[in-house]
Amino acid sequence: MSGCEGPQSVFRTGGSDAAQLEHLFLVMLAGAVVLWLGINGLFYYASRVSARPVSRARVEALILGGGVGLPVVVLTALLVYGLSIMPDQRAPGDGLRLRVTGEQFWWRVEYWPEGAEAPVVSANEVRLPVGRRTEIELAATDVIHSFWLPALGGKTDLIPGRVNRMSLEPTEVGTWRGQCAEFCGLSHALMAFQAITLEEAEFGAWLAREAQGLAPEARTAEGYAIFTAQGCGGCHALRGTEARGTVGPDLTHVGGRATLAAGILPMTADALTDWIRDPAAFKPGVEMPGYDHMDPDELATLALWLEGLR
C-alpha cells in the first residue's frame, strides 16, 4: 500500500479535517461493500440457490421494501452522517487567517495574524501552526483554481469575484504537498505548493522572520544590483526596497521556501539559474520572461543571491 503513503495522500493525514474525511471515506466504502455483497448475494440466491417462482405478495414486498424503503433509509442515514460533519469542516478559525489567491500558475499567500492591519506576504508555500485552527480565505483573479491539500483537509475552489473559506487544523508537524485541482491553463498540473506544519512557537518565530523586509546585507550584495538592473522588481517585490512589483511572487524570502516555482523545482542555486534563464521550459505559458541573454556569471550570482534570501 505504498501508494497510499507520501506527502499528498488522503490516507496519510496530518490534520483533524483530513482524518474526518478519511473516516467518511471508509464508512462509505464499508457501506458500498455491504450493499454490493447483499445485492450480488441476492442475485446468486435467486438465480442459483433457489430459482423458483415466488408469490406475488412476496415480490411486491421485495420491490417496495428493497426498491423504495431500503434506499430511502440508507441514503437518509448517509446524508445525516455526511451533513453532521459539515459544521466541523466549516468551523471558524481561532486566530490566524490566511488569504490564498490563485494565479496562473502560482499561489499568492498572505498571513493575517489576529488583529493585524497589514498582512505578511509570501507565496507558493503555506505554513500552519499545529494544534490551532487556521482560517483560509480563497480567492482568484484570473480563472478558477482549486486549493487541495489532501493530507490536511478537503478541496475548495478559488473563484474570481468571490471569497471561499475553509479552515484547517493540523495535528502533526510535517511537510505536505498540495496541488491546484481545477484546470487553470497550460501549466495547471505544475501549480503545486508545499505546506509546512510547525509547532506554534516555531511558527511564531518563522512568521516574525517572514514579516521582515530584505536584510540590509542582502541589499548591498552584487545580486541585488543585478536584480535591479534586470528590472525584476517590475514584477517581483523585495519588501523594504524599490522592488514593488506584484505580477509575480514576493521574493523577499524566496530562499526560505522548500521549493521553487510553486512546488516544481528544488530551491537550489542551480535550479534558480535554470528557471530564470528559461521559465517557460519548466512551465509552459508562464508569465515570466526568460533571461537567456544574461551573462552566465551574472546569472549565477543572481541565483546564488536569491537562494540566500531566507
Partner: peptide
C-alpha cells in the same frame, strides 16, 4: 426532507 436536513444539521 432532504432539502430541509442541511438547515438542521449544519445550521451555519
Amino acid at each position: 426532507i432532504y432539502t430541509a436536513l442541511p438547515a438542521f444539521l449544519t445550521a451555519t
